[in-house]
Design a protein around this nucleic acid. Sequence first.
DNA 1: GATGAATGAGATTTCATTCAT
DNA 2: CATGAATGAAATCTCATTCAT
Lengths: 196, 196, 196, 196
Amino acid sequence: MSRTAGSHGPATLAAIRKAGLRLIYEHGYEALTLRRLAADVGILSGSLYNHIKTKQDLLFTLVRNHMTDLLANLDQALAGLDDPVAALAAFVRLHVTYHMERRYEVYIANSELRSLEPENRATIVAMRERYERQLIEILDHGVAAGRFRVADTRVGAFAIIAMLTGICTWYRPDGPLGPEEIVRIHTDLVMQGLAG
Amino acid sequence: MSRTAGSHGPATLAAIRKAGLRLIYEHGYEALTLRRLAADVGILSGSLYNHIKTKQDLLFTLVRNHMTDLLANLDQALAGLDDPVAALAAFVRLHVTYHMERRYEVYIANSELRSLEPENRATIVAMRERYERQLIEILDHGVAAGRFRVADTRVGAFAIIAMLTGICTWYRPDGPLGPEEIVRIHTDLVMQGLAG
Amino acid sequence: MSRTAGSHGPATLAAIRKAGLRLIYEHGYEALTLRRLAADVGILSGSLYNHIKTKQDLLFTLVRNHMTDLLANLDQALAGLDDPVAALAAFVRLHVTYHMERRYEVYIANSELRSLEPENRATIVAMRERYERQLIEILDHGVAAGRFRVADTRVGAFAIIAMLTGICTWYRPDGPLGPEEIVRIHTDLVMQGLAG
Amino acid sequence: MSRTAGSHGPATLAAIRKAGLRLIYEHGYEALTLRRLAADVGILSGSLYNHIKTKQDLLFTLVRNHMTDLLANLDQALAGLDDPVAALAAFVRLHVTYHMERRYEVYIANSELRSLEPENRATIVAMRERYERQLIEILDHGVAAGRFRVADTRVGAFAIIAMLTGICTWYRPDGPLGPEEIVRIHTDLVMQGLAG
DNA sequence: GATGAATGAGATTTCATTCAT
DNA sequence: CATGAATGAAATCTCATTCAT
């Protein structure tokens, strides 16, 4: 059951995705060579094609799976929350937590959009817009209810997402701040920033 | 009276930099081909080497020039401002304005750090840290003076910079919001977010 | 049953080495293009890299293999020969025979030394000096025994080697003189030239 | 009248030839770049074309001038010498001396034959054959007169020339042996080698 | 007679991908 | 399902050479 002599079956695909994730995060999609990826998995580059369709397809699959997860998690986190303040807090918590735990996926989904072929990019952009729209709606509700004050909820949503997404460029699991502290700091910044 | 469609001398270098900036912004450094760059400038790819040393050197020069300008502008913008609130406002205004006016440079300086060779990257990272440090110091002063409240000024500075930098991913000069509005929205978010 | 005109596996490497040898002999290392080499082998130039590391490595391998063979043959030819006259005769016979049979390798090992990168060159020069030293020692023994007369054995050895090596610039297998005659002529010249 | 600001007139051509000679000797014709040559002379590569026609023409001129000189010197050295022994001694002295004093030219004339275009090569090969023929005739006379013994005068001549030409691969003006000693050693080797 | 900039060809090398074994 | 070898395209960069200034 060891991986020494190459992985078997689905295990190899999982290994490819894991290594691909890390390598794209570290060097970028264009700079990733399939030879390098294969070497990290312990096979030759030709053998990759027993598991993936193309390099582009690997990227697309990684990003789409990530976005699917993210959206599902968001739906779950917001379920039943009518209060815009509570919803915003839940959004921030989910986003921050997610971006610390899965920073490779998150980083790639943002930075490699331009490496996706048009059709694939359109799919991902649509998913991303669904995500953004949920935050915009929370802000709209909050503003309507007099709980938030922001001149343009769309710009405000972008600003919040950009701020929170920035975490994955500096966060390290072994850094000085624990996840809860990081969640708190950012929740405070967002909540006060919008305070009516 | 030039001899071909392309321009002569310094004009060619300027054209190379301008086209390079746009192409790297659009496709990324790795995906940029010198053939394409040369074609956009109106010369053959080999002729690029009368003006640049290598592709890497072009990237480095673009990013370094940008960082140099940015730091100089920041120094000027903060000169004589002792009040942390005024300093923070100046910082936000400069950063936002700069990121709207020169979003290609800004985007590249952030996204192509990993495409820089180690030595070049170290140079840029050092410049970027000088920039970040100025904001951290403003926050430190503000916290010490009881004007700002933030649990960790370093994390706060990163969050602010990330938020403001996000502008260059969606801003379009012909969009619905004018520069002054965008400055105001972000200044409000930041100021309130830190309000003591 | 191969799939193209080119051969498979080890046969391709052998074909590359053989064609490389001839082409370097004919045009020189710098003037050899990998496109031409690949064409002669019946593959595309990129395919060469399934078999060789770099062009430089191909040259180095060819020269090193040759020197290794030459030294091994010399050791064998001189084994058990204590008499300096017999040893010198054996040396001349080996060298002349070798330079007729493998004149491509011999010529390249001499003419392309300067095309080797410093480290590779050092390796080959060391092997070449081991070869020369054996002749110098034969001459030293012969002079000590009063069998040879030469003012400087090092210069004498160089002169002999230069003379014998010259053969590979004019020898053709289908020329008027057979190998044995050529061996005899040169043996006479050397033996008499050193006669005490 | 300094060379600092670039040479004037014929001085520049002389500088080009001198630098070209050394650079071709050191790196080979194919490996010589005109940029490097121009840099050594102190001009830009485009300016070379005010003095030479092409790179190939520079090589040809260098080699032809050398061969012309060599043949003229040989004619002079052999003038009036009817005795084959005396003639051979004169040939050896001239060749050895020449190969020590002008080893760059000599080395290039031998090693870069294959870099000459067909027509140019034919010219040089013809000159070289005139040179060889003179030695062959000396040997023929000596054999006919019973003064030399060699089975094939053509092969004997090639062997002698190869031996003597080898000097320019190891000779250094500041080496342990003076010119006269080197002449003597080689004269002895040749004379005894042919002794009847 | 030197310069600076262009050309156009071509060099080595790398890459994603395919496929017979 | 992995391998080894091939393809074909393309990439960066260099070179000799030309020519307006």
